[in-house]
Design a protein around this nucleic acid. Structure first.
Lengths: 191, 191
DNA sequence: ATGTGTGAAGAGCTTCACAGCC
DNA sequence: GGCTGTGAAGCTCTTCACACAT
């Protein structure tokens, strides 16, 4: 909507886009203050800015990437994260062929120095894109480096202290969800 | 647990691993029948098999991948999906350099033939790993090919008919979640 | 007239607590 | 004794419906 220069948006409109009930939009927003204007709606620019503030995406968060394989490269290549509130400022790998390479302004560093470098730059967020077997150790080392949250692409459980938040991007889980719900709805449609 | 040859597991144990209340495990399972034995717990092998059946992961689901860039390559390289209930059996791209290449038993085909090929093989699931700009069109073509669900790596909204399920893997969304909750909990810890 | 913000009602999910089976 | 399966209670989230602001 911002890109299309729409000035204001109503909860009804937002709800249509999200496929949910307008009340949810209004109630949820209301927990964070009176974000809209009665009779008018929500100011698009202002709403985006407020949500960015609420989420903590302003100023932009520095992120360290560990693992510059296919996934890591894809993340480094994608340039639009900054507008989403974060930026990959460091990348690590243990492959000599990769260390020293520069991808999209980020130079790949030796994973051996991970803890120290993360600490030096006071990085709070880590992205884990290493093979499953190495993931638990790298996660622990990120923790020692002082990160407060980890986003992992490794399809495994990472046991970490409670003060560290972990989220896994798990393709199998999402596929399972799609399979379950689409066959369920297909069955329901038969009635 | 299966890998570690544990025969049975209790709802308490499962709940610990998931960081939730044991009642949830028991109640949720109960919706699908009496999966466990009183005084004993759940048979690990049997439970896995039953959950696979419930989700529809048995037999394995055929998946078509569109877009063989970094992400697509990472998915093709990962060999363990079959044990998770699905298998990438076709891959498409529009780059001549990629078409004809064989990655992990799958030959990359010309994206021009996408609809027909998907229909021929009666594929129900599509993975979208193309640049954002091409995503909406590819999604529509997958639909015409007859898929019932799409998993997308493109960070954009895909408007599709209601009978097609869509899930997006959105890094920015997950990062935002982590940032919000970790600063929130850090603030709570101060009290 | 339009559309937010919000108590109150309604629906759904989680937890308790215990009967029933191993 | 141990652990599931499950009504009932408790709680949270969603929806309704309308006062209020523009």
């Amino acid at each position: 909507m911002q890109k299309e220069n729409e000035k204001t948006v109503s909860s009804t409109r937002l709800a249509e886009v999200c496929n949910i009930n307008p009340s949810i939009i209004r109630k949820d927003f209301s927990y964070f203050g009176e974000l809209g204007k009665r009779g008018v709606g929500y100011d698009v620019d202002e709403l985006i800015q407020k949500i960015r503030n609420i989420l903590g995406l302003d100023p932009v968060n520095k992120v360290a990437l560990v693992g510059v394989g296919n996934i890591g490269k894809a993340l480094l290549a994608y340039s639009n994260f900054e507008s989403e509130g974060f930026k990959i400022v460091m990348a690590f790998d243990n492959q000599p062929a990769l260390i020293g390479q520069k991808i999209n302004d980020v130079t790949v560093e030796d994973a051996a120095n991970l803890e120290d470098r993360i600490k030096e730059e006071n990085i709070q967020l880590g992205i884990l894109a290493v093979p499953e077997l190495e993931a638990p150790e790298i996660a622990r080392r990120m923790e020692r480096g002082g990160v407060s949250a980890i986003l992992s692409f490794a399809p495994c459980q990472l046991l970490m202290p409670d003060n560290i938040k972990i989220t896994c991007m798990d393709l199998s889980r999402e596929i399972a969800r799609l399979v379950y719900y689409s066959s369920r709805d297909a069955a329901a449609a038969q009635d």
